[in-house]
Simulated scan of single mutants.
Amino acid sequence: MKWVRQLWPFALIALAVLVWNYPVYAVSGKIETASGGKVQVLSSSGSIWAGQMQLGLSDGARVYSIPEAVQWRLKFGQGGNWLAIAVEHPKLVAPLHLGFNGEGITVDGGELRMPASWLGATGAPFNTIRPEGLLQLSWAAWQSGGGLQTTLKWLDAQSALASIRPLGEYVITVTGNPDTRIDMTLTTNKGPLMLEGSGQWENGQRFVFNGYASAQERSKEALTGLLSQMGRLEGDRYRLGVF
Rank of each mutant, 00 (worst) to 15 (best):
A16Q: 07
A50H: 12
A34P: 00
L193M: 12
N101E: 12
V27N: 01
P115C: 09
G176Y: 02
E217C: 05
R73T: 07
A14P: 07
A50S: 14
A69K: 11
V19R: 03
T187N: 06
S198Q: 13
R62C: 04
G120H: 04
S117P: 04
G104E: 06
G231S: 10
R239V: 15
F126Y: 14
S35Y: 02
Q78H: 09
N177P: 10
T224A: 15
A140R: 11
Q40W: 00
N127E: 09
R218K: 13
G204C: 10
V39T: 08
G109F: 00
Q149K: 12
G176P: 08
Q6M: 13
R218Q: 15
G199K: 10
G176T: 07
Q143R: 15
R62K: 13
E217A: 14
A121E: 05
A140W: 01
A141W: 06
S35M: 03
L92I: 06
N101V: 07
Y25C: 03
E68Y: 11
S228V: 07
S44I: 00
I129R: 05
A162N: 10
E32L: 02
A215C: 12
W142V: 00
L186H: 02
S44E: 05
L227P: 06
L92D: 08
F100V: 12
K153G: 01
E202W: 05
E217K: 13
L161I: 08
P95Q: 09
G29L: 04
E88Y: 09
L161S: 12
R165T: 15
G146E: 14
P131D: 03
L186E: 01
L119P: 10
P125Q: 08
V24I: 15
W82Q: 05
G120I: 01
M194Q: 15
A16L: 15
W72K: 01
P9N: 10
L227T: 03
A121P: 12
G191V: 05
R181T: 15
R73S: 11
A34D: 03
G77L: 13
K153D: 05
A124C: 06
V208I: 12
